[in-house]
Design a protein around this nucleic acid. Structure first.
Lengths: 198, 198
DNA sequence: AGAAACATGTAATCGGTTACATGATTAT
DNA sequence: ATAATCATGTAACCGATTACATGTTTCT
């Protein structure tokens, strides 16, 4: 699902400018599971306008730049509902933090502790944001979303606090066999025939 | 952190071919929080070889194509450990599923239920994979990672099962104010000056 | 018979980010 | 003073995915 459809969905909930849509991705209820930059939002809005799926009104403001407030059109609503008929793509989760922890044996215990402390701190900040959302959520969908984030983040914090000792032992070098055994080299019929590049 | 560094990290744990690295991203212990395609892995390995950070041995195999088994070099280890000194970038999580649920009011209760059922099914499959990993994990890092995934996924399943009723009520149309109030339009000094595109 | 696994690699494409350009106002 | 917020937009760049190209063996 591209940024165009994401914008269309947001505009099906309320009118907004490109700047405001970006804020919704950044701090609002969508921040936990979506993101898009101005460089993708503005061109999307232009395309959607060309395709007749949204329209806009230019608003003059005192002491602020003009703003284009976009509204979804009837065709836009139809297009968005068609998009919802497609199955959602799989979640994509990418965490350098977790990748780092695979290599805790290459870092000092202090470094690992610092990494985990920072992570817990980030989570706790998010929890504050989410608690605010839960309080102000006035639709089931919004409450559901906020509650979901809360449940998952709470579980992550609890896990980190209870199990950090597992990776904070001082750097024990040596190879991790746990990855190796995912690759069962068939020693039998393998023959090395050359070495390059070292 | 680009695919090059990811490959370097994996090769710091054990020798592997490009194909095997891909499998590690796909089914192995990294599948929960990383991904990369052949189209990025093979060129990365070539670049790493050119830079002297890895080397490879060509292995002839009976009844299978030749395979290039890569090993990290001393310089490679140094480069990777330098990479670990940088702070990890923030997690990126992208979920169309959660985005869809914001619009549960635009879908039939059946469709929403079907979406949630599929999601729970996916989670339960993952749980099986992770249980296997937990059993075979022979290093603290591996156990820690698997345990983390387990804790988070369990929380998500529990939440979905206990709260799905919130979004499975039959389509109640109308606008969601919960997004709107994240955008406090300063009605006072705003003036519409034109409408375009509808 | 056909699909899936094994195995490597290139080229075209594409979506998206980063940086740039501009500029007033408000908060620190 | 300086940074941050408000506000829109373009161009360059880049990393990564997708599709293509090739071929054997094993599983269903």
């Amino acid at each position: 699902m591209d940024v165009r459809t994401l914008c269309l969905g947001i505009l099906s909930l309320c009118d907004a400018s490109g700047y405001e849509i970006k804020k919704l991705f950044e701090d609002g209820p969508f921040s936990e599971f979506l993101d898009a930059s101005y460089g993708s939002i503005y061109p999307s809005l232009t395309r959607l306008t060309e395709d007749g799926l949204v329209s806009f009104q230019t608003m003059e403001q005192d002491g602020r730049p003009d703003k284009k407030v976009y509204s979804i059109t009837a065709n836009g609503r139809i297009a968005f509902m068609s998009a919802l008929d497609e199955d959602p793509s799989e979640d994509r989760y990418r965490s350098e933090f977790l990748f780092y922890l695979v290599f805790s044996h290459l870092m000092s215990a202090n470094r690992v502790a610092q990494l985990i402390d920072a992570r817990i701190e980030t989570y706790k900040n998010k929890m504050r944001t989410i608690s605010d959302m839960l309080e102000t959520a006035d639709t089931p969908g919004a409450r559901f979303l906020a509650g979901h984030s809360k449940a998952v983040i709470e579980a992550a914090i609890r896990y980190l606090e209870e199990n950090r000792h597992l990776v904070e032992g001082e750097a024990m070098l040596g190879q991790s066999a746990s990855v190796g055994h995912h690759l069962e080299h068939r020693q039998s019929s393998e023959r090395a025939v050359g070495r390059t590049g070292s």
